[in-house]
Simulated assay, not measured.
Amino acid sequence: MTLLSWPIALHFFRMNKRVRQVLILSLYLAVLFALYLVPLGMYSPCIKEEGTLGPAPTLIGHRGAPMLAPENTQMSFEKAVEAGGEGLETDVAISYDGVPFLMHDSTLRRTTNVHEVFPNRTDSPAAMFTWAELEMLSAGSWFLRRDPFRTASTLNVNEKIEVQNQTVPTLKEFLNLAAQHQRLVIFDLRRPPRGHPYRDTWITRTLEVIHNESFINSSQVLWLPDDQRSVVQELDPELQQTSGDHASIEELQEEHIVRLNLHYSYMSQEQIRKYASVNISTNLYVISQPWLYSLAWCAGVHSVTTNALHVLKKLQRPVFLMTPDQYNLMWILTIIVSAFFITAVFIFHWWRERGLPFWSGSRQVNENGPYSKFRTGHPKIFNDHRQSGAHLKDSTH
């Protein structure tokens, strides 16, 4: 509105009708006053009393560190650990011969070279491949070719070679890496399509890997799948039951949920506090921007899933964190400065259009004023041109 004051003031003083002037000025002042009141109705969890900020949310690498290495590969998870991630997130499917492996999409087309190795099966479900077939695929070459986050140029020669050598990992390899570094894990589990040998036993097959084939502790696993939750809870009560449903507290407690995994659009400080009061923590996904992470931090979120572990880990405090007094002072000073400049703009145009000092009480336009729209040149030159015109007029008669 400060910038708009210049053209508004210019047209205001050039209007001939007083009614129009009053209408324009009234409308402008009404909008300006409303904008000045906006800060009073604004809310941010980062406006907090000093000393009330909680600990920073735990960082969980979304498919590892997908900005630094191909998603859902061993290299990606190793990068996430190196960047300081406290947890690792992935997606699990089960091969046709019963090997749980890491893959987000329902097909292999986006993140492998399946079009080169199996050109006739590019649209086939990933779960319909045997493990021997999956081992033949590259899970990293696409990263250098597509550069999804425009970060491939930051990799050195050795890292680019490592990227090209990435293969599809098994769930066992993923869990053992997490166990080795004492990291939490959370994963989506895809049910195999119809006609798959493990269509009805995919839950128990996954539990077999956790219990018998890997050396991870069950307490490190945030168990997200909703299917057969009561059975899973009975088989392994140490798993941290995690839900993606925005359900009531009563429903969550009945299912022994200890953590919620929600999209960040559900972020509400009131809801987060309500869940925390009954020992249900909250994880939000996918948060990769520092300002959004700051809001989650201020709201008391327990953990976030992120693509940018290496960026968020460097934040020492939330962005724009301030006390209510600091916030009010900032806006009061902003309003005062804005009002001063707006007033100065109107005074300047008032003086320019009348050619009078702003302290003059006269409303008569001064034709000899420096900004008179009737004269832009030097007085002597202007008079000489006027006299010359008069002589020419006399000579024509």
Rank of each mutant, 00 (worst) to 15 (best):
S395W: 01
T73E: 02
N156Y: 02
H211A: 06
R109K: 14
N176Q: 08
S288H: 15
E254Q: 08
H196D: 02
S362P: 02
T58Q: 06
S214Q: 03
D123Q: 13
W142N: 00
F129G: 06
Q387N: 09
I186Q: 04
N307I: 12
I342F: 05
V114Y: 04
S214V: 05
P148C: 14
N368H: 09
R14P: 01
F129H: 04
K172Q: 14
L53G: 14
R386P: 05
T206Q: 04
D245Q: 11
F13P: 02
D105Y: 07
E255M: 13
N16D: 14
R20D: 07
I8R: 05
F346L: 08
G64S: 13
K380H: 12
V185N: 01
I60Q: 02
L321R: 06
R18C: 13
Y28M: 01
T282H: 03
I332S: 08
H211V: 01
D227T: 09
H196S: 00
T90N: 10
T343F: 08
F374L: 09
K172V: 03
S281H: 08
P169W: 00
R317Y: 05
N120D: 15
G355A: 02
T343P: 01
R205C: 01
E50T: 15
F374P: 11
H302E: 15
M75V: 03
